[in-house]
Lab assay of single mutants.
Amino acid sequence: CETCDRYISGRVLEAGGKHYHPTCARCVRCHQMFTEGEEMYLTGSEVWHPICKQAAR
């Protein structure tokens, strides 16, 4: 997992080739988790909900 550096077994979320436990992938702006299939916007090592990234501009 990109966030906690632990092995992932079971469900995995992926953004930009990086992998996360579903509970570790959180938006840097709103701190909410991502749901399965939800779009993730990756900037460097930061993961955003698209609407949060747009609002931060």
Rank of each mutant, 00 (worst) to 15 (best):
E2P: 01
E2Q: 12
E2A: 10
E2T: 13
E2G: 11
E2H: 08
E2F: 14
T3D: 08
T3V: 04
T3G: 07
T3W: 00
T3A: 03
T3Y: 09
C4Q: 00
C4K: 02
C4I: 01
C4H: 00
C4A: 01
D5Y: 15
D5H: 14
D5V: 06
D5L: 08
D5G: 11
D5W: 04
D5T: 12
D5I: 02
D5M: 10
R6E: 02
R6A: 07
R6D: 04
R6K: 15
R6Y: 07
R6F: 00
R6H: 05
R6T: 05
R6N: 06
Y7K: 12
Y7W: 03
Y7M: 14
Y7L: 12
Y7E: 15
Y7I: 15
I8S: 01
I8R: 02
I8Q: 03
I8D: 06
I8Y: 00
I8E: 04
S9A: 11
S9V: 08
S9P: 06
S9F: 15
S9L: 07
G10A: 02
G10T: 03
G10M: 02
G10K: 03
R11F: 05
R11L: 06
R11W: 01
V12T: 13
V12K: 14
V12H: 12
V12S: 13
L13V: 15
L13Y: 11
L13Q: 04
L13A: 09
L13I: 13
E14W: 05
E14N: 09
A15P: 01
A15N: 05
A15H: 13
A15E: 04
G16S: 09
G16Y: 05
G16R: 08
G16F: 02
G16Q: 13
G17D: 09
G17H: 03
G17C: 03
G17E: 12
K18A: 05
K18D: 02
K18V: 03
K18H: 03
K18P: 01
H19F: 10
H19W: 06
H19G: 02
H19A: 12
Y20K: 03
Y20H: 01
Y20A: 04
Y20W: 08
Y20E: 02
Y20T: 05
H21S: 00
H21I: 00
H21Q: 00
P22E: 06
P22C: 01
P22V: 09
P22W: 13
P22L: 11
T23Y: 04
C24M: 01
C24H: 04
C24P: 00
C24W: 00
C24Q: 08
A25R: 14
A25H: 12
A25D: 04
A25C: 11
A25P: 05
A25S: 08
A25Q: 10
A25I: 15
R26N: 06
C27E: 01
C27H: 01
C27N: 02
C27Q: 02
V28I: 14
V28R: 10
V28S: 11
V28W: 08
R29V: 07
R29Y: 11
R29S: 14
R29E: 12
R29Q: 11
R29M: 06
R29T: 11
R29F: 05
C30N: 02
C30E: 03
C30Y: 00
H31F: 07
H31I: 04
H31Q: 05
H31S: 13
Q32C: 08
Q32P: 00
Q32K: 14
Q32L: 12
Q32F: 03
Q32H: 06
M33A: 10
M33K: 14
M33Q: 12
F34E: 03
F34L: 11
F34G: 06
T35H: 05
T35W: 02
T35A: 12
T35D: 07
T35S: 06
E36R: 08
E36P: 06
E36N: 08
E36T: 07
G37M: 05
G37R: 12
G37Q: 06
G37C: 08
G37S: 14
E38Y: 03
E38M: 03
E38G: 12
E38F: 00
E38D: 07
E38K: 05
E39P: 14
E39K: 06
E39N: 08
E39R: 06
E39H: 03
M40Q: 14
M40S: 10
M40K: 14
M40E: 09
Y41E: 15
Y41N: 11
Y41R: 14
L42T: 14
L42G: 14
L42K: 12
L42Y: 14
L42N: 14
L42I: 10
L42F: 15
T43Q: 09
T43K: 10
T43Y: 04
T43G: 11
T43L: 07
T43D: 09
T43F: 08
G44C: 09
G44K: 09
G44A: 10
G44H: 07
S45T: 13
S45W: 05
S45L: 07
S45H: 03
S45Q: 13
E46C: 08
E46T: 09
E46F: 05
E46R: 05
E46K: 09
E46I: 04
E46H: 06
V47D: 02
V47W: 14
V47S: 07
V47I: 10
V47Y: 08
V47P: 11
V47A: 08
V47R: 07
W48D: 04
W48T: 13
W48M: 15
H49I: 01
H49K: 04
H49D: 00
H49A: 00
P50A: 11
P50C: 05
P50M: 07
P50D: 12
I51P: 05
I51W: 09
C52T: 00
C52L: 01
C52G: 02
C52D: 03
C52S: 01
C52R: 01
K53I: 06
K53S: 10
K53F: 08
K53G: 09
K53M: 07
Q54L: 09
Q54I: 10
A55D: 15
A55E: 13
A55M: 10
A56F: 13
A56M: 10
A56Q: 09
A56G: 09
A56D: 08
A56P: 06
R57W: 06
R57M: 15
R57I: 15
R57P: 02
